[in-house]
Amino acid sequence: MRTITGTAADVPFTALPPADGGSAPLIVTWHMLDAPRSDAAFAAALPMHDLPAWRVHLGMPMCGARMVDGSTDAIVELFSTDPLMSFLHPFVRQATEEFPAALASIRAQLPVDDGPIGVLGGSLGGAVALRVLAETGTPVFAGAVVNAAIRIRSVVDLFPGEYAYDAESGKIADSLDFVTKADAITAPLLVVSGEQDHPALRTDASDLVGALGERAELLRVPGLAHPLADEPGIEPAPQLPQARAVDTGLTTWFRRHLELR
């Protein structure tokens, strides 16, 4: 597939153009911290080839081109120190805060139109997409999340040991519960949930769709666990069958809403 790589306000990206390579709407994505754990690998897992839109996959902090010393060891150290306050929350906060400047840079570099965008996030990148939807006021024509971090407490519970919340970390965790923020998410949202994903994340996906009502759809994918690619998930790899099913669902969803713009 034809790809364009670069940086947008210091954020690395992998862009996939529409078939004609010309001016078109924009869909922005944030990848998982599980495989695929880079913008290039996420683009290969979910290319959404048939969309008449630019798909620009942004790199998450300390991933891909921003890895420290070319490895994920620094990330492991962060979540070993404090999974919420050293890892999950800072990553979501940084990716959200750097997005407006990255979006402006993308618009300056690529022939994308100036209308509402689409947003997509996987796993922890899903929390970024949901925060953009709920908190930034960015015009969005449609969003989607895949095996997403919808309630950060559910993600914290996946790490070993019992997490000791205090007043500050409890407040942060509450701020990253998007079921309670459903009223602030006004764009239509597709919630993709693997039938083999972590049980708490599957529950959160159902709860978010329930809270959003007619604004949301739930797509359950048989056989899909949490990752969308095989390890190590840093470099682009052939699309797995379960990822292809997700890709088809996303393409159908965004195409429908592109036609309604």
Score class of each variant (00 low, 15 high):
Ser71Ile: 01
Asp73Cys: 12
Ala65Ser: 09
Ala95Phe: 12
Ala65Lys: 10
Met62Pro: 00
Val76Leu: 11
Leu88Thr: 04
Pro90Ile: 01
Ser80Phe: 03
Leu78Phe: 06
Ala102Thr: 09
Ser86Val: 05
Ser86Thr: 12
Pro83Val: 14
Leu103Cys: 10
Arg107Met: 04
Ala74Glu: 07
Glu97Asp: 13
Leu84Gln: 13
Phe99Ser: 10
Thr72Gly: 10
Ser71Thr: 13
Leu103Ala: 08
Asp73Leu: 15
Leu103Lys: 11
Phe79Gln: 11
Leu88Tyr: 02
Gly59Leu: 02
Ala74Arg: 06
Val92Arg: 01
Ser105His: 04
Ala65Val: 01
Thr96Glu: 09
Asp82Phe: 02
Pro61Asp: 05
Ala102Tyr: 10
Phe91Ala: 10
Leu78Thr: 05
Arg93Glu: 15
Arg93Asp: 15
Ile75Val: 14
Glu77Ala: 15
Ala65Gly: 03
Pro100Trp: 09
Ile75Pro: 05
Ala108Asn: 14
Ser80Thr: 13
Thr81Gly: 11
Ser80Leu: 06
Ser105Arg: 10
Thr72Pro: 02
Ala95Ile: 14
Val76Arg: 13
Gly59Ser: 14
Ala65Ile: 02
Ala108Ile: 13
Cys63Ala: 08
Gly70His: 07
Glu97Met: 06
Ala108Phe: 10
Arg93Phe: 04
Arg66Glu: 15
Leu103Asp: 11
Gln94His: 08
Phe87His: 11
Phe87Gly: 02
Pro83Ser: 07
Cys63Thr: 12
Gln94Tyr: 05
Gln94Val: 09
Ser80His: 07
Pro90Met: 04
